[in-house]
Amino acid sequence: MLGVKESCTGSLCSGGLEVLFVRKVVERAGRVRIQAVSTNGQGGGSFGERTGAVSSGRGARERRLQKVAEEKKRKQTEEAGKYPEWATILENATKDDAELRDIIGDSIGNPEEMRRRVEERVRRKGPDILQQKTGSALPMPVSFRDFDPMDNHIWMEFYAPPTDKDIDLIGSVFRSFFVLGRLGGFNSMNMQLTQLPLNAPFRYSTEKAKEALDAFFHNIGDVEFQDNWGRIWVDLGTSDPVSLDVLINALTNVSFDHVGIKQLVFGGKNLGDWDEDLTSDQPDFKSYKI
């Protein structure tokens, strides 16, 4: 090990400058080692390779020294009873979260700087991160009342009369539902990927697809709304019940994230005092054309 002398007086040997002094010593030792190897022709490999090895070692030392300094600063703050618990949690979270690690950067050990960086990121990304949910946290009950898949209504009771935006969203869900069914998408006899064993590689057979019977959605009406109720007439044709599973899954998330649905009912007549005489020309009646 090469001996390197360096004078250290005054405040240089105390506080945060101690780390700077150690770094200077390490850097100088690295330069001396490179020069010695280059002059004597020892150590093997090219000069560039030896330089890279020393630089890599120096970088590792710097990281260790920085980590020691951060830990020392954190312990000093904790001993003073000023290091907040949230800062410790945030530091631990950076170990598994690369994005958070980039945000915090070298501010670990400095709670105020950590707070400032996180708040700045939230201010810049706020519109993309914080999106208010307008639905209901309550689960959406589902029931069936003598439901005939080829000639019946699907009813929705909302917590409040839906807005025009809500009507567009609900209507879009049913339009997509109909398009998929009309194209034969709800065919449980040809669900090859779903029926594969767990962890099996995906594969698809066109021969098996030909063997499956057709399953087509026949017809659908417009989505109609009166007060806080909505309904739609459907003829599922030869579509399989998987179509209803897909619809229920979609409406469940619509209810949770966008517009609360108090209950979803398949079948039944004149629920919620539905007035069959109301038409689109009257203010209490709204519809979405599929």
Rank of each mutant, 00 (worst) to 15 (best):
M140L: 13
M140S: 06
P141H: 14
V142A: 09
F144I: 08
F147I: 04
D151M: 11
D151C: 12
D151R: 09
D151F: 09
H153N: 13
I154E: 01
I154N: 02
W155C: 03
M156I: 03
E157H: 11
E157K: 14
F158T: 07
A160C: 12
A160P: 03
A160V: 15
P161Y: 08
P161T: 13
P162W: 02
D166V: 07
I167P: 06
D168M: 07
L169R: 09
S172I: 01
V173M: 07
S176R: 04
F178P: 03
G181H: 00
L183Q: 09
L183A: 09
G185W: 03
F186S: 01
S188E: 14
S188T: 11
S188W: 06
N190Y: 05
T194E: 14
P197L: 06
N199H: 15
P201C: 09
P201L: 12
R203Y: 07
S205A: 11
E207F: 12
E207K: 14
K208D: 10
E211G: 07
L213M: 10
F216K: 06
F217S: 00
H218K: 07
N219G: 13
I220T: 05
G221N: 06
G221V: 00
V223N: 03
E224A: 08
F225S: 03
F225A: 06
Q226P: 08
N228F: 06
N228Q: 09
N228P: 02
W229T: 00
R231K: 15
R231W: 05
I232H: 02
D235N: 11
D235G: 05
L236E: 02
S239E: 03
S239Y: 01
D240K: 00
P241F: 04
S243R: 01
L244P: 05
D245M: 12
D245A: 14
L247N: 06
L247S: 04
L247W: 03
I248N: 04
A250S: 13
L251H: 05
L251C: 05
T252S: 13
N253G: 06
N253A: 07
